[in-house]
Amino acid sequence: MATPTGNAQTVVYVGDSRVARPTKVHVPRDYMAYPGKSETFIPNFLLKEWMVGSVVLVGFLVLVVMHPAPLGYPADPTNSAFIPMPDWYFLFLYQLLKYPYLSEQFVVLGTVLIPGLAFTALTLIPFLDRTPERRFTKRPVPTMMMLLSLAAIVYLTWVSWDHYQHELKAKNIIPEHIAREQEMHAKKQAGGGTGGDQPEPAPVKVAAIVDADDAAYKEVYMKATCVQCHGAQLKGNGPIPGLLGIGDKYNAEQIMDIIRNGIGGMGAQYDANISMGLTDQNLEDLAAWLAKQKATP
């Protein structure tokens, strides 16, 4: 690039300008002013650092090409067999909560106190370790504490992962992203689709609420348990189906049966609603009103 000429100034700045007229040309300090073999950042040093960078990049891309990012099956809140696992770098914190004195009534110790103390101490280390000594061999306390924490992190992460593997084996579970890949592979071999066509989400129904002024909606539905899961607008919530257009699927009697006995992942609702002060007649009205919810009148 151009070397600063210093006289390219085309405007003489007046009082309204915040840009000062350069008083001196920027001259980088002489290399000789520094001890050892120093060099300029751009391009000399950056090109050397880039050699390290390209080694990392190649390793990274090999990983990316060899292992596609995992994807399991769509989220299903009613799936009770699924073993929750955070991403690996949270495992040590997660494992902490599995110990008796760090869980249940002591959980605050495991969720707040220990991680909080550790992170606060680490953040404030410049103010705790104030000697001018920089070599870690000469400041044993911080060094030992860091080494112990590292050992604890490695150990907890490993234990957590090990437990998970054992649990999978004991319950005979194949992690979903692997199961799904196998399934897709099998399908492909059978001459089926090329994948990407797993459980399609149900097409979004574009039905409106029928008879929204009915007391069964305003007085019953809104007070019943249903609204908590199926939503005030009957639109459902995530994997919980909406009830718009439900009348196309069930009649009043069938809906009453669903309220009494539940369906699939939804438990029986009858008693819960009665104990909340609704009457049997209310629920009958509700079922009748729901049966009127047809997408195509």
Partner: peptide, 9 residues
């Protein structure tokens, strides 16, 4: 990604 792993974690 809203798969089970994401949801439960």
């Amino acid at each position: 990604p809203w798969d089970n792993k994401a949801y439960f974690a």
